[in-house]
């Protein structure tokens, strides 16, 4: 608490000295910026970034740890755990976070980590599928994506993924809701601008599941999509649906080259 107060005082002093917009332009964000592509980290407050940067303070790490436990726990009629087939996640899962969602040939559709886990649970473990933003699902997704921590985002948008990518792009640019806004109006046209008390980001997905201070827990990218849709007074889709899968692919592609930050911390 004392430390946070000190950081806050520091921010206050900086704000007095230089207008924040100018600070942005001058700041070097290192790996969190690739060309014009900027992680949400670069739009976050200094004290929020500090929480993310410290593995002991980052509350999202509790879900990563829970995920590791679940990874090793047998569940379902087949008597298997994730580990039974996938062994050491640091080896077998190391490129998952940076490459998903992927087009899965065997089911003929795009699949993200959440849906892939549930397919594994029902088909291979003979276990019940998890709810999308349940503690176990968030835990294992966080644990799996954490194995790609720091790797540059590199999703494929050709082959079977091409038509999904196109749908995602259309979604991104389609106005919706009573407020009649598309994703791009905030996250392309106005990234960096303040809307009320918040700085609009580029809406990148490389840190999900992201621990939101507002939620007091991590949430999926699809949960975030639902929140955004509702804010423009539009009917959201359900988590895990084709519409949001397509949008997830497009959003991840926008962040190509940004490092996987799971679990990111945002306000």
């Amino acid at each position: 608490m004392k430390r946070k107060a000190l950081v806050l005082a520091g921010v206050g002093a900086a704000a007095l000295a230089v207008p924040s917009v100018m600070t942005f332009a001058a700041e070097d964000f290192g790996k969190y910026q690739v060309g014009d592509t900027r992680s949400g980290y670069t739009f976050a407050k200094v004290e929020t970034r500090a929480i993310q940067d410290d593995d002991f303070e980052n509350p999202g790490m509790l879900w990563v740890e829970h995920g590791e436990e679940v990874w090793e726990t047998v569940d379902g009629k087949a008597g298997k755990s994730c580990k039974s087939c996938h062994a050491d996640a640091s080896d077998t899962m190391k490129n998952v976070g940076s490459t998903y969602p992927v087009f899965a040939k065997d089911i003929g559709k795009l699949e993200n980590v959440e849906n892939r886990i549930n397919r594994c649970r029902t088909d291979n473990m003979k276990a019940k599928p998890w709810k999308y933003d349940s503690r176990d699902m968030l835990g294992v997704v966080s644990y799996v994506k954490r194995q790609s921590f720091g790797q540059p985002m590199n999703v494929k948008i050709d082959g079977g993924a091409a038509s999904w990518f196109k749908k995602g792009e259309e979604f991104y640019n389609q106005r919706r809701g009573q407020l009649d806004m598309a994703c791009k109006h905030c996250h392309v046209d106005n990234a960096g601008n303040m809307i009320r008390a918040n700085t609009l980001s580029q809406g990148q997905g490389n840190g999900f599941p992201t621990y939101r201070l507002k939620w007091q827990k991590p949430g999926s990218l699809h949960r975030r999509f639902r929140g955004c849709n509702k804010q423009v007074r539009a009917k959201p889709y359900k988590t895990g649906t084709d519409e949001y899968l397509a949008l997830e692919l497009y959003v991840m592609w926008r962040g190509q080259g940004l490092p996987v930050e799971t679990p990111a911390v945002r306000n």
């Binding site: 106005r175 919706r176 809701g177 009573q178 407020l179 009649d180 806004m181 509702k230 007074r233 539009a234």
Partner: peptide, 30 residues
């Protein structure tokens, strides 16, 4: 949008021609 097609600014008095409006706002103007 009548004069600025790409604006982010919501139409504050328009009830039709909108996509997937939440039920409680459907058919209503802001």
């Amino acid at each position: 949008k009548i004069v600025n097609k790409d604006t982010i600014m919501p139409a504050f008095h328009r009830a039709e021609g909108l996509h997937r409006v939440l039920k409680k706002f459907k058919g209503k103007t802001v």
